[in-house]
Each structure stands twice: as C-alpha cells, then as structure tokens.
Design a protein around this nucleic acid. Sequence first.
DNA 1: ATAGGGTTAG
Length: 695
Amino acid sequence: MGVNSGASAIKNFLQINPIAQNLKSTKPNSTINTILSHLEAGCLKKAVSLLFSSPFPFDLPLYGRLFQLCSASRAIVEARKVESHLISYYDPPPTFLLNRAIEAYGKCRCLQDARELFDEMPHRDGGSWNALITAYAKGGFPSEALGLYLDMNRSGVSPSEVTFASVLGSCGVLLELGFARVVHGFVVKLGYGGNVIIASALVDVYGKCDEIVDARRMFDEIDRPNAVSWNVIVRRYLEVGDERQSVFMFFQTIRAGVRPLTFTFSSALVACSNRQAVLEGVQIHGVVIKYRHEDDEKVATSLIDMYMKCNDVVSARKVFDQPGVKDLLSWTSMVSGYAMAGRLKEAQELFDKMPERSIISWNAMLAGYVRSGQWEEAQSFIFKMCLNIYDADGVTLNLLLNVSAALSDIEYGRQIHAYIYRHGFESVIYVKNALFDMYGKCGALRRARICFHNMSGQRDTISWNSLLNSLAQHQMNVDVITMFREMQKETTPNEYTFSTLLAACANIFAYSQGKQIHGFMIRNGYKIDVVSLDALLEMYSKCGYLEYALKVIKTAKPGDTILWNSMIIRCCHHGKAREALALFDLMKEIGVKPDNVTFQAVFNACLCEGFVDEGKRYFDAMINDYGITVKLEHYECMINLYTRYGAMKELGKILKMPFKPTVSMLTRIFDACKVYPSPRLAMWVAKKLNKLNQN
DNA sequence: ATAGGGTTAG
C-alpha cells in the first residue's frame, strides 16, 4: 500500500537522497513574500508552484493556511505539493498539519490519498481519525466511515463531538437505526448530549429512520435549537408525511426568533403544497418577504410550486415574473405547474421559451401530456425529446412506458425495455414497475408474468397494485381477489389497492368480500379518500345494498359533491328515484353544495318516476336558490321530462331557452305532439324540422 | 491551530 501516492514517493526519495536539505536559498524571505502576495491575490496555484523554490521549511501556520485553501478550492494537485514540501522539511511533521492534509484530500474526494497518508502517519491523534472518518462520510462512503469509527474505538482513541457528528450523518444515510441508538448512548455517556450540533444530528437520524416520535423527543431536549435544528425537524416531519406538524414547526421557528434557512422555507412550502394549504402558504410567503428572501431563486421556486399545486396559477405567475428569480429551476417549476394543472398550451409555450432545459424540464412537460392523457401530443413531444436529450433517466423511461402502455404499443414498449436493459436501469424498482405495468396493460400477460417473477424479492405495493389493475382490466375479477391475499404476504396495500379491489368485487357482485374489505380498511386505519369511497359506494350499490351505500356516503366530506352526484345517478339506475330525491334533500341538510351535474341527476330521477311537478320545482330552485347557470343538458333533461309525460304547456314555456334546440330535442317534441295533441307546438316544431331537412 | 449537523424542479 502507499506506493502510488505522490507524497510518499517523494518522501521515500528524500529519505535515501536528502539533497534538498543541503540546498540553500539566497533570499528565503523574498520567496515567502511572493508566495504570500499570490495568496493575497487568491492565486493558490501560483503560490504553490513557488513552494519548492524555497528549500527551507516554512512556518507551520503557512502550511495550515495552504491546506485550508486547497480544501476550499478542491485543488488536489496543490494539496499533494504542499504535503510533499511539509514532509520534506519536517521530520516528523506535526500531526495537526497532516490532519489538515487528510481533510484537504477528503474535500478533493481523493480518499485514496487520505487513506494512505493516514496509514503512514508516524503518530495519529483523534483529529486524524476524525479527518478520515469525515472524509469517508462526506465522500459517499458511509459504511466505511462507520467501520473506521469502530476501528477508532478498538484502538483506544476516544471519539469526540466531531466524530459523533460525522458518524451520525452516516447512520442517517444508511438508515442504521440500531447503530445510531448505540452511538446516542455513548454520546450521553461522554456528556455531549447538550451539544446542539450532535443533538440536531440525532434528530436527523431518528427522523430519517422513520422514528419521528424519537426525533421530536430529541428535538425537545435541545436547549436552544438553532436554524439547522429547526430545519431538520421541519424537513423530517415533511418526509414522514406529517405536513401539518412540518408547517407548525416552521411557524414555531419564527416564534422562537430564529431566522429560517432557505431550505426550511422550501420544506415548509412543500408541506403546504402537499396539504393544499394555500392560506398557510401565503403566510409563509409573508415571512419570505419579511426576511428578504423574495429574490432567492430557490425560495421563489418553492413558492411557485406551492401556488401551482394549490391551483393558484395567478400568484405563481406573479412570483415567477419578479425580477431576478428566473433560473432553470423556477422555469421548470412554472412549466411543471402549468403542465400538472392540465394547462398544456401555456406549459408548452413557456417550455419553448426556456433559455435552457434540463432533463427534468423535459420530463415535466411530458408528464403533463401523460397526466392529461393527451397521447398523440405526448408522442410528438417524445419525438422532439429524442432529438434533443441524451440523458434520459428513470423518470423519463417511466413516462415513455406510460405512453406505450396507454397506446397499447407493445413494439415501442419493447424498444424502451431494450434501452432500460442497455443503460442499466433494470435495477431501478420504479422503472421495473412501469415496465411490468406496460406489459400488463398491453395485454402481454406472459411477458408481464415474467417481469413480475423477476422482481421477486423487491416487489413493493406499487408492483402489486399494478398486478391487480392488469387483472381487473382483463376482467379476471376473481383473480384480483385471490392475488390480494398473496399480496398481503409480501407487502402492505394502500388506498389505490382498495379501489381496484372493490371494483372487482362490484363486477362480480361479491358483497361479502367487498364488505370484508371495507372492514379491513376501517380496522387498519386507512384513510378513505374520494376514490376509495366512490369504489365503496359502487360496490354496495351494485351488490344491491343501496341502504348501506347511503349510510357510507354520509361519512363523505361536504366538498365531495361528485360522490353525491354519482350516488344519485346510481339510485336512478336501480329505479329508486325516491331515494335519489331523498339523497338530494340530505345533501341540503348536511350542507353539501349541489352543482350542475347534481341537478342533471335529479332531473333524471324525476324522469324515471314521472315527477313532473317536482322536476319543475327543482328546475326553478336550481336557478333561483342555487344560482346555477342553466346548461343545454339541463334543458334536455326537462324537455325529456315534459315530452314523456305530456306536460305540453310547460314544454312550450321552456322552449324559450337561450339555446338552439337540437335535432333530437325537436324529434322528441314532434313525437310528443302526436301523443298529446298540441297544434301550435306541432306547427312550430314541424317548421323547424323541415328547415333542417332542406339544408 | 482545528474539525462537525441540514441540501430545495419531474
């Protein structure tokens, strides 16, 4: 070991041939002055190049300063030269300076150099261990860092606060909860529990390991949390999905009088977007302005994102149009916002104007087309994309697979599969999931089965949901229910699982299974969102248990008008118009606001049972009490009602509508006139129809 | 003569 290190080669050379020590410079002071003036001018390279024109040792602080500069500018070549000079003229060189050298190598990500120097040091102290452990931890080798920490303990060197900080960071990366707990004990034993940096690191590890309660307990133990501590707790709450607490802790930061970091703003704003909490988002915007962060691109990006995800496009645009916030990120965010809001024209326009684009910008735009199901547009966008990018990533491949699945284009899907194989994306679980999903949706069940089998050992909830979906899509309803049992042996279902499952139950009228699933959801505390609630209603209604569905719908949120609408429609399908109308009354009682679709459904219910007077009353109420603009569809319903039951007088009145009657309306009126004689109306409609026929 | 914790667009 160590033969490849430049520094050690020179050292070996000097040991057998120490001519350097015999050289004498005529003007040592002039050399050092030139070096200092280069450093003053910020020119590290020039300063270092002059080192060896002085065959004398320099003062120790100069080496220290040089190493620090090398660290800061990641100058590996210079760091090696400084080390050479140091070990040439000091024997032995002071340990603290070699520690600085290890740090410099670490910062330059030359872990090999750091390790060799460490191994060859004649005398090591705790600082040397710390420098190397930090180098590994920060250089992306957390397990090596932990290994070194164990070596350190074995060699009898006591860890310090610095050691613990790095070690806890590595535990966080590796999700080594057990290791972290042991370290925590040691921290307390050595009396470092009050150190805010270590305490924050502990909060971070516990949070990352999903132990948010312990994280919070640790946080509460900190005497005076600083900006980083607050940042950590806000972030960790966000990442475990407790957005409410995340936002709450953000405002606590302000109350504690701590100025939040820009990162903290971003986290809190993401938390707001996830909860659609625009009011809190606006408050955070206020804090942004108070702390003069408005023109920080990163904060602005988070603001744009928050407003976009809360459907406030105007405010998002306002932030974006502020001077000085436009960068790649905020452009991308804006495009993504438009795209995800389904405003693809605006998204594409902005995308075309972007001064530069990253793969994420391309993905964002494509995701918009995919989300809105605009497959043809997606295809032509992909064509352009292929000509312009060379760095497709996992997300790109996912989207491409979604497109080929939607178009059932298995040929294209296979090509993407080949690309995935060639570029080593096969190990990425979400790419695999999308691939499997594609084969399933294209009906290539044999290929899908192979994919699913190949994924054994790393299948997650999404893989299983995909399987259930593809079975459901092929009407294999019984298999959906069977495979759900298999799924539970391997992973836990989520809300999406249940909507598929309940739909399968509904298709085969499997009431008892459906009911069991409902019970399962309740027992296991799944939140029943609009989609699964709708699936439940559908299952109970289809299985003929309307009363039960009615019981369930009362647990819906007042905002979910759609659920009530589809429930009213379902009642009509079962010929239960009275129940449908009762539902409408119940809506009023509970405070659910009906919309135009609700009234269409209500009119249809009246049509089923021949409730002409009620229909007219509801129609008037829609206009006068609810202020809903009457659409052509509503007139259609009313005309159906009046023609079917011969309410010719009302029919005549309603025809003064602000729309041109459609052909089907006219035909229906004409037919009604034959059953319920109404000469004037007959004349009017005959004229209209004739005119149409002539044209 | 010193080190250390947090990382933001799909």
